[in-house]
Simulated assay, not measured.
Amino acid sequence: MNESIETYFEACVCEHGHALFRYIYSLVHHKELAEDLYQEVLISAYLALPSFNEEAKVKNWLFKIALNKCRDHWRKEKTAKKFWEEKVHLYTDGMSTAPVPEEECIQKCHQEEVEQQLSELPDIYKEPLFLFYYHHQTLVEISNEANLPLSTIKTRMRRGKEKLLPKVKQMSL
């Protein structure tokens, strides 16, 4: 990049940097996270500066980049939260001791009961759930294999879980 672009960018940061940081902080309410996102915004803006439309206002452009970075962060955070809600049980804690034989037997019986309840679901719900939880395929892989849109697979997964949940709860009573 030439020196005039760098000088222009530096002037923009000097003029709008403080307001940009306050804006990001108002969205995320966490100082360290706001600092990280601020750095990401500046990097993205610097890299995209040659394609910047001079007719647009720089401040609006920077704030739009900041909003998009915050949305990306929230999306990642939501995915991580979903991991803990749905998948963390698949991993074992390295510090835990091996389950006693009775617990293993109970877990195996419970898993067999869940598999039985799963097998009783209609095929459109059973197949994506089975591929996701037992064959560890991603939703995209299931979508490609079934030759169906990803949104259809997501809907079938949600509906399948909704149909399976009361049956599983009933088993544990």
Rank of each mutant, 00 (worst) to 15 (best):
C12I: 04
K64H: 05
F52I: 02
K59S: 13
F63N: 02
V41Y: 06
Q170Y: 05
V114L: 07
Y91I: 15
E10I: 06
S119F: 12
E141M: 07
G17H: 03
E32P: 07
L37C: 09
V168K: 04
L148V: 00
L67P: 00
I124C: 05
L164R: 01
I142C: 07
K154G: 03
I106Y: 08
K163R: 10
A80G: 04
R75N: 13
T79C: 13
P101R: 06
T155G: 03
M157C: 09
Y8I: 06
E86N: 12
L131M: 13
H30G: 10
E85Q: 15
L90E: 14
E115G: 07
Y91D: 12
A19Q: 15
E103M: 06
Y91G: 05
Q111E: 08
E54D: 12
E32S: 14
L121C: 05
S51D: 10
K31Y: 04
T79R: 15
S4E: 15
K59F: 07
E162Q: 08
T92P: 03
V168G: 01
L90G: 03
S119Q: 08
E145F: 05
D72W: 11
K76Y: 15
T152M: 03
I65T: 11
R156G: 00
I106C: 01
T79S: 09
F130L: 10
F9A: 10
A48L: 08
M171F: 10
L121K: 06
I5M: 08
K57A: 15
Y25H: 14
S172Q: 05
W84I: 10
E35D: 10
E112P: 00
L42A: 09
K163H: 01
H29S: 14
S119H: 06
P166R: 02
I153M: 00
E15R: 15
Y46N: 05
L164P: 04
C14E: 14
E40H: 14
E141Q: 15
A80H: 14
I153K: 00
I153Y: 01
K167Q: 11
T138K: 04
E145I: 07
E145L: 08
L20E: 11
E141F: 00
E85R: 14
M157I: 11
I142M: 02
Y38S: 08
A98C: 00
F130A: 04
K81Y: 11
A19T: 06
E127T: 10
K76I: 11
